[in-house]
Nucleic acid binder design. Structure first.
Length: 576
DNA sequence: GCCGTTTTCGGCCCGACTGTTTTCAGTCG
């Protein structure tokens, strides 16, 4: 039986949506496929596992009879007849053509049917030859723009970026705009405000009575390479690093509706607007309009809008249409974990392995953040490339930790290790060595391409070892670079819950591992979670906001995160 | 194709900007 992971299934349904759109199908059908794809991608469990266990897939939001049947057919036979027929009708490669910015379904269809273009390469050649201009409503400017988009795609600089790139750039833009006297309020909206793990573009909102100077300053910023659009209240630019940013200016009285609208997600907004409709209002970014008499209500604060609709305030991280609307109606939203709740970290590196700063420097940085404890977990011996520690070096390191501890009574310093779960399934240290340490993180860094059974077995061996407290970055993914290992996460989470082994939410923006969906599932299963920056230098502790955001997106409260415990309680918890 | 404390059928969100226009379609978010 062929196994498909959620990403593969989601991609198939998303591609179906794309091709149906080119075909000109009913737009709600297209929406339904995309919604199903999104929900499958954000599922904390494998759809395949659920199906294999005989669960009713229709219980998943956005999946009805048709898509449940198609999933079952795919899992049973490894193929989908509907898809085979579809790509016989509409060339599959048009999915890529649709991915070119400024190429939508209408244009893709006309390029295909009028000019016979079915691949990005063919579209590029046609644009270079001036042939796109022959299509209706296409001129030289549109053609040049599409060619530029394709070239940007080829440079791979229009894709999504992780938060480590998007966040600092957004902060720079905000700082620039906030300096303008005309800007009354400045905020980043969109997926960055929701703290999605990757960001496609940046959305900024400014409350102002005078948009012109703000738009001008925005377009004139240092890193702006190109101004894509510039209207009266909206402009778009592209930065040198390829990221696009949109700016909207609006009257302060409409701040609440606008911020809500532009924060999204789209799926969340659709639900909010449906709710407004049921109450007899239509909602857009400017106001809530009563349909009976056209009376317009504007809201200065987002919370007021939510309240008016009978909802508790929904934090941006939850706005993904994953049940938050219902929870806000029942006033049962979780009280999300905050950065300030974190009392210590249990996974960081020093110059003893591949860190850039000494134990003392790391300890002082942790103290400055107000942490009560810090565990130094340098790499273990078999990770030679990171200067992993032998048992003998571990013992010498203990001496240095004790010396620093004597100097810094304000923080509790512990010695741990980030121990390799080796490719052959064994652990890098014997139990005798592990018993000498205060804390053990076990991680997979090698052999991530092994098959599911082998990988899962390796992980379970670590989870079942009585000396292992925490599994570091459990899936092994590197955002925008490397796929997660093919672990059976469900089995791993069950074992973690049973043994009391914690799973990490690694806060490094390249990792964010566990991801939000897995965090939510882990909480359901009663798994202990810990958020760590895996810091390799003092500045690395700044990444905590990303880890906390990921936890929040998984609906985590402080109670779900073990390192929100003060030292005494944390130490007690360790002994169990 | 999905969904239902107003519905198992008939709904399903809305506006800015661009380019090519003679009044608007396409794309995007």
């Amino acid at each position: 039986m062929p196994r498909f992971n959620n990403k593969e299934v989601a991609e198939l349904f998303a591609n179906i949506g794309d091709l149906l759109e080119i075909k000109g199908e009913n737009r709600f059908k297209i929406l339904a496929y995309r919604k199903a794809a999104d929900n499958i991608a954000g599922l904390g469990q494998d759809l395949f596992n659920l199906w294999e266990a005989g669960q009713d897939l229709k219980k998943i939001e956005g999946i009805g009879q048709a898509i449940a049947d198609k999933s079952a057919e795919l899992f049973e036979t490894g193929k989908l007849e509907f898809w085979e027929k579809l790509i016989a009708e509409v060339p599959e490669s048009l999915v890529d053509v649709l991915n070119i910015p400024d190429v939508g379904p209408k244009l893709a269809k006309s390029m295909w049917q009028e000019l016979g273009l079915t691949t990005v390469a063919e579209v590029k050649a046609a644009a270079q030859a001036g042939k796109l201009q022959t299509l209706p409503r296409m001129g030289a400017k549109s053609e040049a723009r599409i060619l530029a988009s394709i070239e940007a795609l080829e440079r791979r600089d229009t894709g999504r970026v992780h938060l480590g790139i998007a966040w600092p750039l957004a902060m720079t833009v905000i700082a620039t705009l906030e300096k303008l006297p005309e800007a009354l309020k400045v905020e980043v909206a969109g997926s960055l405000r929701r703290m999605r793990e990757t960001i496609g573009d940046l959305d900024f909102l400014v409350a102002t009575e005078q948009p012109e100077p703000i738009m001008a300053a925005f377009k004139a910023m240092n890193d702006v390479q190109e101004v894509i659009a510039a209207g009266e209240t909206k402009s778009s630019v592209r930065f040198r690093n390829g990221l696009q940013a949109d700016l909207r200016c609006l009257e302060p009285s409409r701040w609440g509706t606008a911020l809500q609208y532009f924060t999204g997600s789209q799926a969340h907004n659709v639900k909010v607007r449906e709710l407004a409709q049921k109450k007899g209002y239509s909602l857009n970014e400017y106001a809530l309009t009563r349909e009976s008499d056209g009376e317009k209500l504007s809201f200065e604060q987002e919370a007021d809008l939510y309240e008016f609709l009978g909802l508790a305030y929904i934090p941006p991280q939850l706005r993904e249409d994953r049940g938050e609307i219902k929870a806000a109606q029942n006033k049962s939203l979780p009280e999300l974990v905050q950065v300030g709740d974190i009392k210590g970290e249990v996974h960081c590196h020093s110059t003893w392995s591949d860190g850039a700063q000494s134990i003392e420097e790391m300890a002082r940085a942790a103290m400055e953040r107000g942490y009560e404890y810090l565990v130094i977990t340098d790499h273990s011996q078999s990770l030679g490339i990171a200067n992993g520690l032998t048992p003998e070096r571990l013992r010498r390191q203990r001496q240095e930790i004790d010396d620093v501890q004597a100097k810094l009574p304000g923080i509790r310093l512990l010695q741990g290790t980030e121990m390799e779960i080796k490719a052959d399934g064994s652990l890098d240290f014997s139990d005798e060595v592990l018993a000498e340490l205060d804390f053990v993180v076990a991680s997979v860094h090698t052999g991530l391409r092994q098959d599911r059974e082998t990988l899962t077995k390796r992980m379970l061996a670590a989870i079942n070892n009585p000396y292992v407290h925490l599994i570091g970055h459990p899936s092994g993914r590197l955002l925008t670079q490397r796929e997660a290992g093919d672990f059976d996460m469900e089995a791993i989470m069950h074992a973690a819950a049973e043994t009391g082994t914690a799973l990490e939410i690694n806060a490094s923006p390249e990792r964010l591992d566990l991801n939000d969906a897995h965090v939510r599932r882990a909480i359901e299963l009663g798994v202990d979670l810990m958020i760590n920056c895996d810091a390799h230098h003092a500045a690395g502790f700044e990444n905590m906001r990303f880890g906390v955001a990921t936890a929040s997106r998984g609906w985590a409260t402080a109670e779900s995160i073990v390192n929100t415990l003060p030292w005494e309680k944390f130490a007690m918890r360790l002994k169990h």
